[in-house]
């Protein structure tokens, strides 16, 4: 088709609103496509990747002893000044934290404490559901930090979940295969 013919065709198309009709057809088609929405927390839940920086946790060594040596480097580097460490010395002459508090209400989850720690004792884990009605509840103590879940092993998966208003989001399945984010996105 010659250029002039093509141009005439375009003009005739405009005359009959071909472009508008195209747009309408496209949106109508999309209306019956599957939504990409992830219904968190009613039906699905996303599991973080290993690199995700969620709630902090403190590690233990092989003997079950807390790894932290209470050097306070994390407290020093923290840009938000939200870590408070009080050391003590146990019977073997080892330093450990008597008190280790992180104010997660102030924390910006930069991960600098994890980088600074010489004993590889603190890290940012996979938990991301810890909202609270009171900012006091967000000050997390040593024993709670020890109990927090660690880094995600696989990650990126989406599992079935359902909202439990009393406790937490319940995860019902354990399969954590990678999630295809393009699952329902139409590529035209």
């Amino acid at each position: 088709m010659s250029r002039a013919q093509y141009r005439v065709g375009t003009w005739i198309g405009w005359g009959f609103f071909a472009d508008l009709a195209n747009g309408l057809a496209l949106t109508f088609g999309y209306m019956f496509s599957r939504p990409v929405t992830m219904q968190y927390p009613d039906q699905e839940k996303w599991l973080p990747y290993p690199r995700y920086r969620g709630h902090h946790f403190l590690k233990r060594d092989e003997e079950g002893e807390i790894k932290c040596v209470a050097c306070e480097l994390c407290a020093q580097i923290c840009p938000c000044d939200c870590i408070e460490v009080v050391p003590y010395e146990d019977e073997n002459g080892k330093r450990h934290p008597a008190k280790f508090e992180i104010d997660t209400a102030r924390c910006l989850f930069c991960g600098l404490c994890e980088d600074a720690c010489p004993a590889d004792a603190i890290a940012l884990g996979q938990q991301y559901e810890f909202s609270s009605f009171s900012s006091r509840d967000l000050v997390i103590g040593r024993d709670d930090l020890l109990a927090k879940p660690g880094k995600a092993a696989t990650g990126g998966g989406v599992v079935a979940a359902r909202l439990n208003t009393k406790k937490d989001v319940l995860v019902e399945t354990e399969e954590t295969q990678g999630y295809d984010w393009w699952r329902n996105i139409r590529r035209t």
């Binding site: 949106t27 999309y30 209306m31 019956f32 496509s33 599957r34 939504p35 990409v36 929405t37 219904q39 009613d42 329902n184 996105i185 139409r186």
Partner: peptide
């Protein structure tokens, strides 16, 4: 709802 589905969302669900 129509807006949601045209934009591949779900619209109000809760």
């Amino acid at each position: 709802k129509v807006a949601g589905h045209m934009q591949q969302r779900m619209g109000p669900m809760r």
